[in-house]
Amino acid sequence: MRKLYAVLSIVMLVGVLLSGCGGGGTGGNAKAFRVAVVMPSAINDLAFSQSMYDALVTIQTERGGAENFEIAYSDGTFVVDDAAAALRDYASQGYDLVIAHGSQYGSSLQEIAPDFPETSFAWGTTVDTFVAQGIENVFAYEARAEEGGYVNGVIAGTQTESNVIGVVGPIETGDAKLYVDGFIAGIQAANPAAEVNVNWIGSFSDVALASEAAQTLVNAGADQLSGTAQMVVGAVGVAEENDVAWFGTQSNQTSLAPTVVVANQVYDWTVVLDQMFDLIEKGTLGGQAFALSLENKGLLIEYNSAYNLSDEAKSAAEETIKGIVAGSIAVNVGE
């Protein structure tokens, strides 16, 4: 029997190893800036995790490649305990900055960060740096997702003909909630008569349910759809099948449905990462909170050039962006 358990444990071990697959950084330069990031979904999820990974790769290129800027990551770490182990692991390997890219990793980080006072950590999306708990080596970052949501909402509200608009969300919290609240506020500003239906599916990963939620929203009359988080890839397909306009967020989702994607709010984390790196190089390891916004160009609205957007909707969107940047339009949503 002993042999059987040995075989069995090997099968399981291989499974665990494979499921925790991540990329390692290369580079032997002792002076290289070394960053490690733990993410809940895949680096190519066309959403939350990809936005962070792409930003790190951009910075790596700007700083002269892997020799000067080393990246290590663990993606698909949706189990919080696994993420905690990975965070601790990276910290003990002496990375300069260890990023916990997921609101759900907060309590783990709160335990880990004090054990590595020389290491800088970052946690997002949140505004909490744990300074109140006496922890001084954690940066916080978030995205004002409601701003781009508002712009998307203005376009959707302007071009809807059925006056019914649908949204698919994961769980009613964090930047998903901010985005959806902003989207609704934008619709109401542009078209008070429009009805907005929201479906929270209770999961960040259930692609099948997200797609059925989108179908339900279309059946209820929606001619404009949006959604946030990585499980919306199925919902984008439903939009395309039914020829319903789609508004993306977090990453540019145009490639999924080139005929119906109107615009995407794209996160560019380089804006906040650069600020963190500068502070770390000057010796500040945490205690500050950063946010992506339309104003600091951490949030960008990327239009799909293949979509025939009316001049009216386009100029409404541009006016809205200007208004939010200038402060004349206040997107008042909050947790």
């Binding site: 979904s41 895949a42 990963s205 692609v207 797609s211 990585q230 199925g234 397909g237 999924l256």
Partner: peptide, 10 residues
């Protein structure tokens, strides 16, 4: 769904 992504079956 006509897509694949990590942990598709969830």
């Amino acid at each position: 769904l006509n897509v694949f992504q990590q942990n598709l079956t969830s």
